[in-house]
Design a binder for these strands. Structure first.
Lengths: 108, 108
DNA sequence: TTTTAGTACTATGCAATACAAAGTACCATA
DNA sequence: TATGGTACTTTGTATTGCATAGTACTAAAA
């Protein structure tokens, strides 16, 4: 039982929410997202974000298009689908409810 | 990809925080905890809480004592150990940081 | 030309945890 | 004696964050 593990556990489901929010009405590829998350003090690594993007795409919440890059391999630019936008709204409510519930349960 | 699964995922690590907080300087057994969580809109079931309590006990964060019950089998009353109290403070910080980070990443 | 470094993505496997389901054991009452 | 409710244990599953290794593309250094 260590804090690092608990931190990883607490991110479960939450990263999905953050990624979907960042891709709401805005395109970005993996490195953009990692950077944006980093600025919010959420350190996400490649081994986490690529499978996550693939999963959200397979579930119809994200779509993507290839874009050539000048200095490297092509990039996958993702954005939320209409279904993704709808799911995002539900996630927002879910997250707010959780924060409120945890606040109640843990207030001294 | 459904909301119920995501809700379950978002609870990972969080329930540990809540339980530890509820058992800070206060004794309770499983049914007490389920009830207290319920009042905070956190529905936890037996299959979740019993393994969780066992895990926290094995990690030295909780201790327990048996108490006879008038109408049923004996109960395990848990409470946080000094190590548990210390870990709880770290969890509090971790959770607050996560809430702030998610707030930043998902603010429209 | 060949090699090296950096970027972007894929694929595989592990560990941890919430949850479900079935089972054991105790007590009181019908 | 049988039934119902309470309390806890055990086993198994699904999901997900993360680590690691690998592929492929470009550009610059050797």
């Amino acid at each position: 039982m260590n804090l690092e593990n608990t931190k990883a556990q607490m991110r479960k489901g939450v990263l999905e929410f953050c990624i979907l929010s960042l891709l709401s009405n805005k395109e970005a590829y993996a490195s953009d997202l990692i950077q944006a998350m980093k600025e919010s003090k959420l350190l996400v690594v490649e081994g986490t974000i690529y499978p996550l993007l693939t999963r959200l795409k397979n579930d119809g919440l994200l779509s993507y298009r290839w874009e050539e890059s000048t200095g490297g391999p092509p990039r996958k630019y993702f954005k939320a689908t209409p279904l993704g936008e709808k799911f995002l709204e539900e996630l927002r409510i879910t997250w707010d409810e959780l924060v409120e519930a945890v606040g109640k349960a843990t207030s001294p």
